[in-house]
């Protein structure tokens, strides 16, 4: 009873809450880092150094008036933010934050579940998230959101192909689709897959920047051309849901990158006995540190790089990343067969 029901439920509650807190503080981190990059201070007023700013933002967004445009498709308009939020959250069901540990005299796994098709589950759930964007643009019944949502979904679908192909080459290395199995494969191979698959990793990083609609690929939200993107007509909590979904997706992508390419919960050089003093740091902390590096990288890129043009973005995706990903996949397959 406790093992089958209470503990999974507790894990779900903890992961969901941690994610939402993480998302709100991700926004603060982004504002602070970008301010630092631009020699500004960023939010400073709410709490010491603006540390309570996310709470103030959340309260503001919840208290704002929730407007539905008169000619909007009301049902779809209401459902769209939910559709984009839910996939971003249910992905965490298969992300392993750590191995099995004993906690209060009980063996507990630090992941909600480990399914045989874990990676496929992540890819397929992420592909459903596109609907939120398309429907938001359609339901607003307004031209800028419609254009932005067509752009966004075209971009997402194009880059999803490249990213999925890189994931296939990781699966070729690990021989399993289970997220825990992939980490274990990196442990037994004595190698983080980022070093075994540098090209796949590079394509994954670029593709995931595009898939999360982040700079330099944030065309769907290009303020100068589209007045804000597919969520132009949204306000209040529904707008906040899109915002949360975007940042939750960033955290998902960082977690997936950590699991697939950087050994998940493993400490650096897990097979060197000389470094075993590092074991006093718990496994999930390594996971969080690695994911944080990724998230910081996301913000750093946004502060540094200018935006792509739309045709350049499409050309990069279809004519460079996808052929490279396929070539990498074929090469990985040949090497695997040769080594067996």
């Amino acid at each position: 009873m406790i093992d089958g029901f209470v503990i999974p439920l507790l894990k779900i509650v903890i992961v969901l809450n941690a994610t939402l807190v993480g998302v709100t503080y991700m926004v603060l981190l982004e504002r602070k880092v970008i301010a630092w990059a631009q020699s500004r201070l960023g939010p400073m007023r709410v709490g010491p150094h603006g540390i309570l700013q996310p709470i103030a933002d959340a309260v503001k967004l919840m208290l704002k008036e929730d407007i539905t445009p008169a000619r909007a498709d009301k049902w779809v308009f209401t459902v769209a933010p939910i559709i984009s939020m839910v996939p971003a959250l249910i992905v965490y069901a298969v992300i392993p934050f750590g191995p099995e540990v004993s906690l209060f005299g009980r063996q507990v796994t630090l992941y909600i579940t480990d399914i045989n098709v874990g990676l496929l589950y992540i890819v397929s759930v992420a592909s459903v998230g596109v609907y939120g964007i398309i429907l938001a643009g359609y339901a607003s019944n307004s031209k800028f959101p419609l254009l932005a949502s067509l752009r966004a979904s075209a971009q997402l679908i194009s880059y999803e192909v490249a990213v999925t192909l890189t994931l296939v080459s990781v699966v070729l290395m690990s021989g399993t689709l289970s997220m825990v199995g992939i980490v274990r494969a990196q442990e037994s191979a004595h190698l983080w897959f980022a070093f075994a698959q540098p090209l796949a990793f590079g394509i994954f990083v670029i593709g995931s920047l595009a898939e999360t609609n982040r700079a330099p690929f944030d065309l769907p939200e290009a303020e100068q051309e589209l007045t804000g993107g597919f969520h132009t007509e949204y306000s209040g909590m529904r707008f906040a849901l899109f915002f949360l979904a975007e940042y939750a997706n960033m955290i998902v992508v960082s977690s997936v990158a950590t699991t697939l390419f950087f050994g998940g919960w493993l400490r650096p050089f897990p097979n060197w006995a000389a470094l075993s003093f590092l074991d006093f740091i718990p496994s999930w902390t390594w996971f969080l540190i690695k994911s944080f590096v990724f998230l910081y990288f996301f913000v750093w890129v946004r502060a540094t790089l200018p935006r792509y043009r739309y045709d350049q973005l499409m050309r990069l995706g279809w004519k460079l990343l996808i052929p490279l990903a396929i070539a990498n996949l074929v090469l990985t397959g040949i090497i695997r067969v040769a080594l067996l």
Partner: peptide
């Protein structure tokens, strides 16, 4: 489960 994931990925997505 494989077919379920493929169903979501190919059909729904």
């Amino acid at each position: 489960p494989f077919l379920a994931a493929i169903q979501v990925l190919v059909y729904a997505g």
